[in-house]
Design a protein around this nucleic acid. Structure first.
Length: 162
DNA sequence: GCCAACGTTGGC
DNA sequence: GCCAACGTTGGC
């Protein structure tokens, strides 16, 4: 799951959200709101289960890469920020009276990796263990599937010295 | 700030 | 249902 760790102002509000920001939340837990892509939404709505772990990826920043691990603590439910006109992620096409268009999950901080596993480093394994990784083959999707093998490989990288 | 990749919109 | 125009993502 991708989030932007550096300050970015949308509609007057800072939408920055880093792995440290998650850790600092009450109960180290936060809704993953603001996803406005149907494929990403479907993954949150239909595939994520309580207890699943996710890689917390920092995007659109100085050093993009996997920064930590979180886990799903609440399964897909409507993203109410879509129908709040004052919210940075307001979606004018979402009808508060109709069926919800956008969904979110709640995630809880698990731990940071000992070191950030940068996109640059991930790319070094594009011909190897990360051959099929969606992040490298497709990019541009803010919630995307990761295989068990990819997950373990990246966590192992982030647990060792560079 | 640039721009490639790619998702969405909307006319036809 | 096609596809050109447009908007967004996100690395660099």
């Amino acid at each position: 799951m991708k989030a932007e760790p550096e300050t970015r102002i949308v509609k007057g509000k800072d939408v920055r959200f880093s792995v440290d920001d998650l850790a600092a939340m009450p109960a180290a837990t936060s809704p993953w709101d603001g996803v406005r892509n149907y494929e990403a939404r479907n993954i949150m709505r239909d595939r994520m289960r309580v207890g699943d772990q996710i890689l917390f990826y920092h995007s659109n920043c100085k050093e993009p890469g996997v920064a930590g691990i979180a886990e799903i603590v609440r399964e897909g439910y409507p993203d109410h920020t879509a129908t709040d006109p004052s919210h940075p992620y307001y979606d004018a096409k979402s009808n508060p009276e109709g069926p919800p268009r956008w969904f979110m999950v709640d995630v809880r901080f698990v731990h940071k990796l000992s070191r950030l596993v940068s996109l640059k480093e991930l790319k070094q394994h594009h011909d190897g263990k990360l051959r099929n990784m969606v992040l490298l083959n497709r990019g541009r999707l803010s919630v995307q599937p990761v295989t068990q093998e990819e997950f373990e490989f990246i966590v192992a990288l982030g647990s060792s010295d560079a």
